[in-house]
C-alpha cells in the first residue's frame, strides 16, 4: 500500500502484551485452565493489535497514502507512542510470560538435538496463518478489493470499491497478524516495551523481498533468518547481524526492487 510501517514491531509488542494480559486473567480467575491461555490469547491479541492498527490508520496513515517517506517518519512517531504507552501501563521492565505445560519440553531427535515443542507449534502456527492470508487475499472478495486498491486506487474507487474502508480493513488485518506474531513471540522471548525495536531489522527484509510482495517478504525473512542463525553459530551474534546488514546493503545495490520485482514498462 505504499506504507513502510516502522511501528510494526510495536504491533508485535501489543500482541505480546495481550498474551500477558490473558495469562494474568487466567491466573486470577481460571487457575485450573491456565494451560489453555495461549489459544484464548490468539483472538484477543489479534483484535487488540487490529484495533490499534485501525486507530493508527484512521488518525494518521490515512492522510499519507502515496507519501512513503512521510509515512516512515509518522509511523516512527507512532511507534514511540506505543513504546512509551507500554512503559507507562506495564512498567519499563520486561514482564514474564510462561509456557503452558504442553508446550514445554520437546522431541529428542538426536541425542544432543532437542526440538522444543513451543518452537514446533509456533512454526505450525505461522504456516497456518500464512495459508489463511493467502486464501484471504486470493480467494475472497475482500482480498480482491485490497489488490485492486493497491494497484490503482483511483480506478478502484471509480468502479465502486469503498477504498477508504478497504484501506482500514487491510491495515487492521496486517496489524492483527502482527498481533498473532506477538502471541508466538511471547512464548519464546522476552516481553517488554522495547521488544518491537529489535524488529527494525525486519523492515529491511520487506525491502529485500520487494515492497508489496507477500511471497518475497516470506522468502526474504526465511532466508535471512536461516542465514543469520548459521552465521551466529560460527561467528557470534553481533558479527552475524552486522554481516546480514552489510549483505542487505550490497544486495539492494544489485536488485533495488527486491527478489520478486515487478517488471515491465511501468516500473520507474
Amino acid at each position: 500500500m505504499g506504507i513502510i510501517n516502522m511501528a510494526h514491531g510495536e504491533l508485535l509488542m501489543v500482541g505480546a502484551y495481550a498474551t500477558y494480559g490473558m495469562q494474568t486473567l487466567f491466573r486470577a480467575y481460571f487457575p485450573d485452565a491456565i494451560d489453555w491461555y495461549p489459544p484464548a490469547a490468539i483472538p484477543v491479541a489479534f483484535f487488540a493489535a487490529a484495533l490499534v492498527g485501525v486507530v493508527m490508520e484512521r488518525t494518521v496513515i490515512r492522510w499519507l497514502y502515496g507519501r512513503t517517506l512521510e509515512t516512515l517518519l509518522a509511523t516512527w512517531g507512532l511507534s514511540l507512542v506505543l513504546i512509551q504507552s507500554a512503559r507507562v501501563l506495564f512498567g519499563a521492565q520486561n514482564v514474564e510470560v510462561s509456557n503452558p505445560s504442553w508446550m514445554s519440553g520437546g522431541i529428542e531427535v538426536m541425542p544432543n538435538l532437542i526440538l522444543p515443542w513451543n518452537r514446533i507449534i509456533i512454526v505450525g502456527f505461522a504456516m497456518f496463518v500464512l495459508f489463511l492470508v493467502r486464501v484471504l487475499m486470493n480467494k475472497t472478495r475482500l482480498g480482491m478489493f485490497v489488490r485492486a486498491v493497491t494497484q490503482n486506487r483511483a480506478m478502484a474507487g471509480c468502479v465502486g470499491v469503498p477504498t477508504s474502508r478497504i484501506d482500514t480493513m487491510a491495515f487492521a488485518l496486517g496489524a492483527g497478524i502482527a498481533g498473532l506474531g506477538g502471541v508466538a513471540l511471547s512464548q519464546i522471548s522476552n516481553v517488554g516495551p522495547d521488544m518491537g525495536q529489535g524488529y527494525i531489522v525486519d523492515s529491511f527484509m520487506v525491502v529485500v523481498g520487494g515492497v508489496g510482495q507477500l511471497a518475497g517478504a516470506v522468502w526474504a525473512a526465511l532466508g535471512l533468518g536461516i542465514f543469520s542463525k548459521l552465521l551466529e553459530g560460527c561467528a557470534g551474534a553481533v558479527i552475524a547481524k552486522i554481516s546480514i546488514l552489510v549483505c542487505i546493503i550490497i544486495f539492494i545495490q544489485k536488485r533495488p526492487q527486491g527478489i520478486f520485482a515487478l517488471k515491465g514498462r511501468f516500473v520507474e
Binding site: L72, F204, V238, I248, Q253, P256
Partner: peptide, 21 residues
C-alpha cells in the same frame, strides 16, 4: 544503482544500525 526514496532511507538506517552494533 539508482536507489531512491524510501529504499535509500532504509539502507542508510541499516548502515547506521550496523555501525552501532
Amino acid at each position: 544503482s539508482r536507489i531512491k526514496g524510501v529504499y535509500f532511507s532504509i539502507i542508510t538506517l541499516a548502515l547506521t544500525y550496523a555501525a552501532m552494533l
